[in-house]
Design a protein around this nucleic acid. Structure first.
Lengths: 333, 333
DNA sequence: ACTCATATCGCAAACGATTTCAATGATTCC
DNA sequence: GGAATCATTGAAATCGTTTGCGATATGAGT
């Protein structure tokens, strides 16, 4: 059981008081250059690392952020990887709060605050109600990731989902498709809703016929999707392409298509969103609109760290970041 | 900014000293029943929750465990979900340590110990060297999950991988297959090695011809696998079935098969291991040997919590748990 | 009644940092 | 040259618990 080296030890070694050591540690401005050096040298030579526990006990904050996602969803586990590793490099910890269904954001925040956690990155959760804004006053910061809080001043990083959809349609139109179905998620999620809007945009832009019946937006169970796709494929003028609002959905669509005896992409083209890892597996080879998930993850974390470390002026609202979607063409179109 | 209620408040309210409150909190035996009741009532009425930070500062341990896995691998993100949620119910936290490649176990442990973390569940990492055993003396406990430490006294929960392989072969033999290929991972991982051994067992048991050339065990890149599968499928007496040592591998195998113009399961049958979520997607419909991942996750966590809370006697080694594999037949066989 | 063991509990010192307050020394200003 | 200012540091309190030690009370044993 090795002995811990504390600020006291450093202080004694450097011939100063513990307070001074602490000040050096925290970048307090009024320290004589020479003593700063002494202290820093002592820190180095004694191999001192401040005890975050003791530190947190008094400052009432930890270098830990919550990551609120559905961790078994590949899109999120893949981005979580990025966030976790980047956080580790910077000596922060990430606590994953797993949530599949919609939970009350404020309740989640309370849970994290109780653990003295300093902020959270929210990926799931229905929609950002304004309750989160107040939390900033308590020193708890919230950034949105992949979802755009409507009507709120909180920071978010997303892709331009509307444009993303347009990209998908454009690609299909170029391939000669005119009847395109859209399998969307629940519209209360901004992501899905925006993708739907973009779809409508494009339908109009390219002068396609809009058919209410080629649109699905219910609960995303396998059965629902299989049934819907089967139904539309049995119509006399069936669609020749299907856009699914996520890769996971798209894969289910693929199965519905082939179980109806049709070929992809010959009879029906399919495109998804997100570009999760499995989509690039040659067996799937899904054409998809990429989210730039790595970049998105990095920005979300960086922003959170920034406002945590520097605070946030009353009026300087961080501009939401909107990334460009990118079409990745593979074998399903 | 609400005021925190502390043991002091509780003490005053119950008319005892803080020490007594603390003792009640920790189940100290010599407390008069009547005062225990008083204190408990005070705790309830004041809605007191002990500050884990302060607690940890002095006890030098946290109610946090590390989970060492490759979090973007579906098998692990799916089990992580189980572990995280179960931990949360019990008021424990999970810190994910993401690692794709082999890192030194002891170094990871040191990292976690520095954060006052009390133990870890190890899912990845090449193999458990004995260095982890010493850590128990420092109060840091290690349990293995999905990997069996060879030659070590540490706790582990796995499935009977050897039997799992046998199950797969048996199933294929029943379907009339006699020439079966095996795509395994690196043998330094106990999981993969055991699956290989089970394969050999079964080859012998069912009197199959063993052909060195139908065996792959190199680095698991997509290219390697595609090439290998293509090669063996081009032979004049090609295998009629392929076993892949994980579902992810199996899906890649599927693509290799179809890109060689062969049909699954008509021309070639394929079976995987793990039963990750995507495998049940009808488009994949992979026949696989299930790991009982949920149960495995639960046991690992429970065991870790148990030895953390009750300590571990010098000589009572916890028996490793080995779960039964279960064959799940879908459309690839 | 007088030990003595055994419950039961409170005091005060930890744990390892931060932070307020005041003291000191140096510098500047008139 | 004395007052005022400002940079620089240390002493001590604090954060919210746990815990070693000692004090008291209680009851058993003789």
């Amino acid at each position: 059981m090795k002995k811990r080296v504390t600020v006291k030890d450093v202080a004694r070694y450097a011939n100063v008081s513990p307070s001074t050591v602490s000040r050096v540690l925290n970048g307090y401005p009024f320290i004589k250059e020479s003593t700063r050096q002494k202290v820093e040298r002592a820190i180095r030579e004694l191999n001192f690392e401040p005890d975050e526990l003791a530190r947190s006990l008094i400052t009432r904050k930890t270098k830990t952020f919550g990551l609120v996602v559905d961790i078994s969803n590949p899109f999120f586990s893949e981005t979580a990887k990025v966030i976790i590793n980047r956080a580790r490099e910077r000596n922060y910890d990430i606590l994953i709060y797993d949530t599949s269904d919609d939970e009350d954001m404020e309740q989640i925040a309370r849970f994290l605050i109780n653990k003295n956690i300093s902020g959270m990155i929210v990926g799931t959760v229905e929609r950002a109600d304004r309750s989160c804004e107040k939390l900033a006053d308590e020193g708890f910061h919230v950034v949105f990731f992949n979802r755009k809080p409507d009507n709120s001043k909180l920071f978010s990083v997303t892709i331009d989902n509307r444009k993303a959809s347009r990209l998908a349609v454009e690609h299909l139109v170029q391939k000669g498709h005119r009847r395109i179905a859209f399998v969307g998620g629940l519209f209360k999620y901004s992501t899905f809703f925006d993708r739907y809007l973009g779809f409508l945009d494009a339908v109009q832009e390219f002068g396609l016929h809009f058919d209410e019946e080629l649109l699905f937006s219910g609960k995303l169970t396998s059965e629902n999707i299989l049934r819907f796709v089967s139904d539309i494929l049995k119509k006399e003028n069936r669609p020749t392409a299907i856009i699914a609002a996520s890769d996971l959905l798209a894969i289910t669509v693929l199965s519905a298509v082939s179980s109806n005896g049709l070929k992809v992409p010959g009879d029906v083209a399919v495109v998804g969103f997100d570009n999760i890892d499995i989509s690039s597996n040659p067996y799937i080879g899904l054409t998809t609109v990429s989210q730039q998930k790595t970049k998105m993850a990095e920005i979300a974390l960086d922003q959170l760290m920034y406002i945590f470390e520097n605070g946030i002026g009353k009026d300087e609202l961080p501009e939401p970041v909107v990334l460009e979607p990118k079409l990745i063409v593979r074998n399903t179109t």
